[in-house]
């Protein structure tokens, strides 16, 4: 018998988890949980947290973070102006999760708690250097996203903890970003490989603060320092883009499974980074051109 509970406050949920954490499952959008009957079967209490106001909302905190509540849906994130302004990459990634139906139900907190190596929001959050705010009865902590995941479906969360929100430090300057993924079809599928990219763009066409993260090619999403180094402080050229792509291929520790192969995933992360960088390369050259032309005219 499964008990379904909807509680009125985060404090009540924390109490509940403290007492019955091992036999409880949290549900917000349900897009991961409901399709896995075996996980439902192991729980005796299902706690619906989708209604908790404490887990909702998108805003900027007094200490200068973008805060996104754990129960905010992917679609809300994709559509939100504040997110688009301060963490465009996350909006780009969330806009590509599943399908319209999944994006309308699935939540950011759920994507993190599920801890799939292929979770689409995770590479973006890695690039954005987000922190995951966890709460439990009488305690709380903020875990840097790169320390949050331990392995497939495994996080550092204790049995009585839940995700309250995701915090993303605000950035100054002009940033460029993209999220690219490959799947077995165009939507409604688990990514075979994904790439998130973030960099600050300067007037002289140099990129700094370059962040590259990969999904679905390792037990957890990973950053690729070698790819970042290949582009950091440089003007984007096709050679550098190819070098960064090559670094992604080298960094991928992919596996063969029902959805794809190790070899393909390694190729794909390289291809996806290139696919994202090519239009950026184009755009930055285009931005540069008129200035050159006007100079000539003078």
């Amino acid at each position: 018998m499964l008990n379904f509970l909807r509680l009125s406050s985060l404090a009540d949920v924390s109490e509940m988890l403290w007492a019955d954490g091992p036999v409880s499952a949290l549900i917000a959008g349900g897009t991961d949980l409901l399709v896995r009957p075996e996980r439902l079967a192991s729980a005796r209490i299902l706690i619906d947290i989708s209604n908790l106001t404490e887990l909702g909302g998108i805003g900027v905190t007094p200490d200068g973070d973008l805060r996104i509540g754990a129960a905010v849906t992917h679609q809300e994130i994709a559509d939100d102006d504040t997110v688009r302004r301060h963490a465009h990459l996350l909006a780009q990634a969330c806009a590509q999760v599943g399908s319209v139906q999944i994006r309308n139900r699935g939540t950011l907190g759920g994507n993190l708690a599920n801890a799939s190596p292929a979770g689409d929001s995770i590479p973006a959050l890695l690039c954005l250097e987000a922190r995951v705010a966890l709460v439990a009865r009488e305690r709380g902590r903020a875990v840097p996203i790169n320390e949050f995941f331990v392995g497939p479906a495994k996080t550092v969360m204790q049995v009585d903890e839940l995700i309250e929100s995701v915090r993303i430090p605000l950035r100054r300057g002009r940033w460029v970003s993209f999220f690219e993924k490959a799947g077995q079809r165009k939507g409604m599928c688990c990514s075979k490989a994904s790439v998130a990219f973030l960099a600050q763009r300067h007037g002289d066409r140099r990129l700094t603060g370059v962040r590259v993260a990969l999904g679905a090619v390792a037990p957890t999403a990973i950053r690729v320092p070698a790819a970042e180094a290949a582009l950091e402080g440089q003007v984007l050229t096709l050679e550098r883009a190819r070098a960064a792509a090559e670094a992604c291929r080298e960094a991928a520790r992919a596996i063969d499974d029902i959805r794809s192969t190790r070899d393909y995933r390694r190729e794909a992360v390289s291809a996806l980074l290139l696919q994202g960088l090519l239009p950026l390369y184009d755009r930055m050259r285009a931005l540069a051109r008129p200035r050159r032309r006007s100079r000539r005219r003078r």
């Binding site: 079809r185 165009k186 409604m188 688990c190």
Partner: peptide, 23 residues
């Protein structure tokens, strides 16, 4: 439909992928 030794590896629409309207 993928099988290994007569056992099905693709037993639901999570692993048996069909086109959606996007495809």
């Amino acid at each position: 439909v993928r099988l290994e030794g007569g056992r099905f590896l693709t037993t639901n629409f999570h692993t048996y992928v069909i086109p959606t309207s996007l495809d």
